[in-house]
């Protein structure tokens, strides 16, 4: 199918883009990578009256920082920018590992980091990364820039804290320096398909004991979830299979899992435990 008709605007500066979306309001939609929006338009499920294409806006892409200090990611940075770790260290390695699970190679050439977050698909890998690691999102509007914690940004399926007059411009990921181990496990029907369940974790282990923990899951509920209670449980525990199984069971009990044609609630809850155990085991290895 072909999309419904729309008007097209292509600003070249952020100020211009903000002015446009402020003027257009609800009828407008920002076009970044377009890898989720355009299929929805081609189904005529999404029918924006105006598209504001920000691909030509200067200064919105690029990666800076490092694993030890944290990474700052321009919202228009393409997924493919992470195909090779942008620098050394556990955080960059984790991003390079995760990105291989985002759809497929050509999709990753167009799709953007900020676009994924703004779209807020419950099975988005970047949503999981930002939610789990506690990213800070920088959001611009005509009235200035505000910072929103990832935990407050994701509100539900395809729903975020973004207002129609706002653009996500930058994402700051906190550091994961030396001493941290990371794990990511995703299960999908075919590689590149939407996750039926996935878990992401970072552990700081000293002498076999978990000192710090980050743990989040995606694809199992209406948004990526950071599991603070389970993280708290993990800290101080020995880093072995029994601990991981207990953590998985805790998470399974606490999440009201979603259902779809590929995974009913029963199976998805079961899978949730598996992906958590496997991600934790990888981080501890």
């Amino acid at each position: 199918m072909k999309p419904a008709a729309f008007a097209y605007l292509a600003p070249t500066t952020l100020a211009e883009a903000l002015e446009m979306i402020d003027r257009i309001g609800d009828d407008g939609k920002i076009l970044a990578g377009g890898q989720s929006l355009v299929p929805a338009m081609n189904f005529r499920l999404a029918r924006p009256g105006t598209l504001v294409d920000i691909n030509g806006v200067a200064g919105l892409s690029g990666i800076s920082g490092d694993s030890a200090r944290g990474i700052s990611i321009g919202a228009l940075t393409r997924h493919a920018a992470f195909h090779t770790p942008p620098f050394s260290g556990p955080l960059a390695d984790l991003l390079a590992k995760v990105v291989r699970n985002i759809a497929h190679y050509p999709i990753r050439q167009r799709g953007t980091f900020g676009g994924s977050l703004s779209h807020a698909d419950p099975a988005s890998e970047w949503c999981l990364v930002t939610a789990t690691l506690g990213a800070t999102l920088h959001i611009a509007s005509l009235t200035g820039t505000r910072e929103v914690a990832a935990a407050d940004f994701f509100r539900g399926t395809f729903t975020t804290a973004l207002q129609p007059s706002e653009i996500l411009v930058r994402i700051d990921l906190p550091p994961l320096g030396a001493g941290w181990g990371t794990g990511f496990y995703e299960f999908s029907r075919r590689k590149g398909d939407f996750a039926l369940a996935m878990a992401l974790t970072a552990l700081r282990i000293e002498g076999g004991t978990i000192r710090e923990a980050r743990l989040g899951v995606g694809g199992v509920a209406d948004r990526a979830l950071r599991l603070a209670k389970t993280e708290a449980f993990l800290v101080g525990q020995p880093a072995h299979a029994e601990t991981f199984a207990a953590a998985a069971a805790m998470a399974q009990d606490s999440i009201d899992v979603s259902e779809d044609i590929h995974a009913g609630a029963d199976y998805r809850r079961d899978l949730l435990g598996t992906v958590i155990r496997r991600a934790l085991a990888e981080a501890a290895a």
């Binding site: 377009g34 294409d53 050509p106």
Partner: peptide, 20 residues
């Protein structure tokens, strides 16, 4: 799939005007 500025992309997910 076509190459846009050297990168393979889905030409069904880009609008022609974006190739300006």
């Amino acid at each position: 799939t076509v190459l846009v500025d050297g990168k393979p992309v889905r030409s069904c997910l880009m609008f022609g005007v974006q190739a300006n």
